[in-house]
């Protein structure tokens, strides 16, 4: 484990991010593409890998697999309940089944099927949920699911992964494949900077510390990781030394890293494109309350629905962009005193 009370100057290097993450040259791509690439790779390596979708193969990037391995692809139509059940049946025959749909509908609509057909039977079914959160934008509140992390992390046998960019989505999918148990992988449609690299570490249950800091620690997942890194850069100009930790694994959660920064900074901020209740913020609050009681300020959606708008506009309005994170960090620092 890299850190410590003094901070570790090698930390950032060890994470192997792109050299200048804020440069305009950093390519912007959607994390869903990372899933699609990993699925293709898995399909080639393992004859037991099957992929299913509910009328959204291109949007979820399952079509790359479908074109290459039609005999292991299943199009179920607009039927997410069936999607989860069919996958459980396929998994019961010794296969590894990947179901892809919009997060609003899977797990939004098929929670019961995921709970009983998948989790209760501990089936080797991976749930790829794209278009999650406010980031889906103009489609509006009905399509902006903000409750999926809460639902999925409450389920026994489930692993919950929220990758921050394309590269990490690929790694998360490949890591989930090694588990022979249910996993949830949440991706986005929005094109965002691919700031991690193939050399950036990824281990389920082990948070990535991208930036060490002593004043406050920002724990983020998904697209908020980049927003948090931007916020930390701005905060530095104000003399605030903020750590940024990528919580790609919501379950299992890296309690040790939370504890370490609770002790070191004395105050934490969480950031996510999800309801703060039950999401990453809720998960961190549980760890803190049980073992390391320090203040936590949660950045996320506060018990409301979203609305139409583009991703940047919504992130600004709902204060889950870098500016919102900076405000919350300042609030957190006031609590520290």
């Amino acid at each position: 484990m890299a850190d410590n009370e003094t901070g570790n100057p090698e930390q950032k290097t060890a994470m192997n991010l792109v050299p200048d993450i804020f440069a305009a040259t950093v390519p912007k791509k959607a994390s869903r593409d990372g899933f699609g690439k990993a699925l293709l790779e898995l399909g080639e390596k393992d004859q037991n890998v099957w992929a299913l979708t509910a009328d959204v193969s291109e949007s979820t990037r399952t079509h790359w697999f479908a074109e290459k391995y039609p005999d292991r692809f299943v199009q179920v139509g607009v039927a997410e309940q069936n999607l989860a059940g069919i996958a459980a049946g396929i998994a019961a025959c010794g296969k590894q089944a990947y179901i892809s749909a919009f997060a609003a509908f899977s797990p939004g609509r098929n929670f019961d099927q995921i709970r009983v057909s998948v989790c209760y039977s501990n089936s080797d079914v991976k749930i790829h949920a794209s278009h999650a959160g406010l980031s889906v934008g103009p489609d509006g509140a009905s399509h902006q699911i903000l409750e999926d992390i809460a639902m999925m992390r409450a389920l026994p046998n489930m692993t919950v992964l929220v990758p921050c960019d394309l590269e990490q989505a690929k790694k998360a999918t490949l890591a989930a494949a090694k588990l022979k148990t249910p996993a949830y992988i949440r991706t986005s449609r929005e094109n965002t900077p691919v700031f991690t690299t193939p050399q950036t570490p990824f281990e389920i249950g082990k948070a990535n510390v991208y930036r060490d800091g002593k004043d406050v620690a920002i724990f983020a997942c998904g697209l908020q990781v980049f927003e948090a890194l931007k916020a930390a850069e701005e905060l530095k100009k104000k003399g605030i030394d903020a750590a940024v930790i990528d919580m790609h694994s919501i379950k299992p959660i890296d309690e040790a890293t939370i504890a370490q920064y609770a002790k070191k900074c004395g105050v934490l901020v969480s950031a996510e494109d999800h309801q703060v209740n039950g999401g990453l913020g809720g998960a961190i609050a549980e760890v803190l309350c049980e073992s390391h009681p320090v203040p936590l300020v949660r950045v996320g959606v506060k018990d409301s629905f979203g609305e139409s708008g583009n991703c940047a506009e919504l992130y600004k309005k709902y204060s889950i962009d870098s500016a919102g994170i900076i405000k919350s960090v300042e609030e957190a620092l006031r609590l520290k005193k």
């Binding site: 005999d71 292991r72 299943v74 309940q81 069936n82 989860a84 059940g85 069919i86 996958a87 459980a88 049946g89 396929i90 998994a91 019961a92 025959c93 296969k95 089944a97 019961d112 099927q113 009983v116 057909s117 209760y120 039977s121």
Partner: peptide
């Protein structure tokens, strides 16, 4: 026991999934 069940409607989907593997 081939499947967990209880909430109605879930078994038939699993059966279809199994049959699809068998057929393919």
């Amino acid at each position: 026991i081939e499947n967990s069940s209880g909430p109605l409607g879930q078994g038939i989907s699993q059966a279809v999934g199994m049959a699809l593997v068998g057929k393919r």
